[in-house]
Design a binder for these strands. Structure first.
Lengths: 206, 206
DNA sequence: TCGGATTACCTGACATGGTTCGAAGTATGT
DNA sequence: ACATACTTCGAACCATGTCAGGTAATCCGA
């Protein structure tokens, strides 16, 4: 349907505007915090009235939703860029690499971290589509973790808790520094050294 | 000054009202979330208009501030009451006990956790007085940690990160359950088993 | 090229939120 | 009883997210 060049053109323009709005939103939250996103100011930034934004996003939370999705896409891309065949033979280094990439992803953009990993916006809940992207990103990361030797749920849970904990402390108590970031290696090694990390007793093909 | 009984009476009444407002505020945030605190509704709850609250608290954030302080006082009290029969026979008792108490404190009241340990209220920053209470609480906890064998900064940093990470995951991904809470022992043991945890090489009386 | 439809954006308005001001009522101290 | 301080209130201000309706530009088929 419609090899119509004009129709494509119009919808392309619309896509552009959508992207422009989201980009402006990222700028705003970077400057004023995640909760500091104002429809009127956002409208100003893209050169239209606040109400006009509603022909692109049905509500402010839909904008957060778009950012949420974009954030998790960035997360997937970021974690995939970790793929480095040089380390596939060594069980310790991929894990460390993964961990560092994760913590870096969090600390690089604290506002994004807040949006993706802490649920702090009052009425916001990701749409099914965005949530699906998030789940895919997690699944992706989980597989990479498994590749680097961490498989059972309790261990990956502990892994998640440790790294989000480190990232969180880093962001809130030493922004810009590395007081917690430099503990990442030690944390990873702790987990890898733990006998419970490689369970051959149950739920494992004897 | 004035040992005046009437003056005392008036200020006592004022103290009562202050406490009543804060108590009502805790109820409200428990029901509507930390950001769901509305001056008008809060006024309704204590039987006055929203504007009247301003003769008790200069702003909404001052109410958050009072809650913040109260929260850290509760934290101190909670961590001091550390006798738990579950751990009496446990060799790693003090450390495990501390860890469990901490995670419990967080999960028991997620809203309080959000107020005390995550900085998520838009314009809120604790007053110097409240912050002093928070610092004292941390210092208190740090001493207890030291008593149970965790002394150097990196180790206590890692401890903090692990436990807040566990609490955070528990609260946001399995509220009411124990999927992360039950990993607390393992996390503590990991830290205790780590050779780096007991450094006798430097900054230690030979 | 022209008329109808679709689109982009606007103005105006509403509800709700925190907050200020100044007046009225109430308790307190002499 | 009177002056004073304290408490509470009504009205209003400003910023916010959002809805309803209008207007001008753009696109499409004839």
């Amino acid at each position: 349907m419609s090899g119509n060049p004009n129709g494509d053109r119009r919808s392309a323009r619309r896509q552009e505007t959508l992207a422009e709005i989201v980009a402006a939103a990222w700028e705003m939250v970077a400057e004023h915090g995640l909760a500091g996103l104002s429809m009127r100011d956002l409208g100003d930034r893209v050169g239209m009235r606040a109400q006009s934004l509603y022909s692109y996003f049905a509500s402010k939370n839909k904008i957060y939703d778009a950012m949420f999705m974009e954030g998790y896409q960035a997360f997937s891309a970021w974690m995939e860029a970790t793929d480095d065949p040089r380390f596939r033979a060594d069980p310790a280094r991929p894990a460390r690499l993964l961990a560092h990439r994760f913590v870096e992803f969090c600390t690089i953009d604290p506002v994004r971290y807040q949006l993706l990993f802490q649920r702090t916006i009052p009425g916001f809940e990701p749409s099914p589509e965005s949530y699906a992207v998030a789940l895919k990103a997690y699944e992706n990361a989980r597989e990479r973790l498994a590749d680097s030797g961490l498989r059972d749920q309790e261990t990956t849970d502990l892994w998640t808790a440790m790294l989000t904990g480190l990232a969180d402390q880093q962001i809130s108590n030493d922004p810009g520094g590395d007081r917690w970031e430099r503990l990442v290696d030690r944390a990873v090694d702790l987990l890898l050294a733990d006998p419970q990390t490689h369970p051959h007793t149950e739920s494992d093909k004897a």
